[in-house]
Design a protein around this nucleic acid. Structure first.
Lengths: 204, 204
DNA sequence: CTCCTGATGTCAGCTTCTGACATCAGGTCT
DNA sequence: AGACCTGATGTCAGAAGCTGACATCAGGAG
């Protein structure tokens, strides 16, 4: 028989989420979270470096999944396609949790401090993907751009997925958004139909 | 004669930067910053909503400049070009301050809490640009993608500009990075020379 | 049986940030 | 002129987040 109840971290996460739902994020203290989990404030801070972090426990797993997929992509796949495919591969992580994801999204959106944390997690993910791409031989800037484009695709795909009345899966939206990105970044040679030529400086 | 020394906000910014340089960010308290500026801690928090914010006073001006330029771009310019041009237009804001920008960059890079703040400022900028693009008739997702691509271009261009031994201006680097982005997001029809066809699902 | 380890608790303290209220020079209104 | 208002600042108390140092103690290792 163990000395303490197991799964302290999970208990803290559940307690936190419950309290945030009931009272809101700011009106919940770390002491209250710990108490609900049967622990003390000090122990909370041993598991999570700060109050926000309790909502981002899954970030490391996501990062590993994505970077692994990028690293494992066939060498002849275009970098952006490899990254998009890697994000498609995360669909199973979320598939069964759409209601939870929606609730979490609303919570984060309502609190700038949580948005900041989300943004730095995504930035860390972008950095990790960048590194994977550099190992495939891409230059630093290009690797960074592709990684950040991938993050942008993921963000918009995720948002669409959350709101999708037709309940199509995340991978579907990733493909759709990738297609839009390609459309919108395509070089502006001949746009729509009849237009006077646009004055263009030669880039690069 | 005024009742108080003028330019309280500027004095606080200077005091903060000086102390951060001398002792480091974490070992500087808000009370010390205020004291150096001849004010009290309470007054500091009247000018800046938190300790980090004192380093981001220029963000609003940057946002106005960029969104203004996007809104004022000719209607026949491709959205991504309009956004890139808007970022090129920010060059004068930085041109004379390369050493300061470098120091600030190092400070932010060394402190995750400052990175978070920088990221959310960029996200706000992206949101503002997105709105400008929507007014030009772009759909929500496309506007968001273009804005975020623009931010990515700006970030990498800025980094290159900081380190550029040849001291070329920011606009030059924006154009170069834009070109790289276009290259790297181009649809992968016929890549380099001899390759076996890549299996591709039809997107969208 | 003893010792060590590791998860937890206890406690004191610093810093950030906020609300409530006080102060008071200078301009405004009559 | 004199009363009054305004707005920038100061003072004070306190909540909450977070940290370092040290104590506790069940269970495993030897």
């Amino acid at each position: 028989m163990a000395r303490w109840e197991p799964n302290a971290s999970e208990r803290l996460q559940e307690a936190a989420l419950g309290l945030f739902r009931e009272r809101g994020y700011d009106r919940t203290t770390v002491e209250e979270i710990a108490a609900r989990a049967g622990l003390t404030e000090r122990t909370f801070f041993r598991y999570f470096s700060d109050k926000r972090e309790v909502l981002f426990a899954g970030a490391k797993a996501l990062e590993k999944l994505v970077t692994g997929a990028v690293a494992g992509a066939a060498a002849n796949v275009a970098p952006l396609d490899a990254v998009a495919a890697a994000f498609e591969a995360t669909a199973p992580l979320f598939e069964t949790r759409r209601p939870y994801a929606r609730e979490r999204q609303a919570l984060v959106l309502a609190h700038p401090e949580l948005q900041e944390r989300e943004l730095i997690k995504l930035a860390a993910l972008a950095a990790a993907v960048t590194e994977s791409l550099e190992k495939r031989g891409l230059g630093k800037t290009r690797a960074g751009l592709v990684a950040e484009a991938g993050i942008a695709i993921f963000k918009h795909a995720f948002e669409r997925w959350l709101d999708d009345a037709k309940k199509r899966d995340l991978a579907h939206h990733v493909r759709a958004v990738l297609s839009e990105l390609r459309h919108v970044t395509a070089a502006p040679a001949a746009r729509t139909t009849a237009r006077r030529a646009t004055r263009r400086r030669s880039t690069a």
